[in-house]
């Protein structure tokens, strides 16, 4: 199975939403700020549930937040 990378546009989306802070996003999706930092840096791949919640917080689809790259 080829190694896949999951990138994300969270930093860009936060910027587009009035410079939403990582803490604000964490509060909206119900996780800790450290988890948002890890997801944003690509060090932690969130569960489907959290991925959908993050997308919902920005009002976009999951595919607009996370990209699957082989």
């Amino acid at each position: 199975m080829p190694k896949a990378e999951i990138s994300n546009r969270i930093r860009r989306l936060r910027f587009d939403h009035d410079e939403m802070t990582q803490q604000e996003l964490a509060d909206r999706v119900g996780c800790t700020r450290q988890t948002i930092i890890a997801v944003e840096a690509g060090k932690y791949v969130p569960s489907l549930s959290l991925a959908f919640q993050i997308a919902k917080a920005f009002g976009v689809s999951v595919e607009e937040v996370f990209q699957y790259e082989e």
Partner: peptide
Amino acid sequence: ALYDERDEA
């Protein structure tokens, strides 16, 4: 309240 799915992982 102090931990989430990453901490569980």
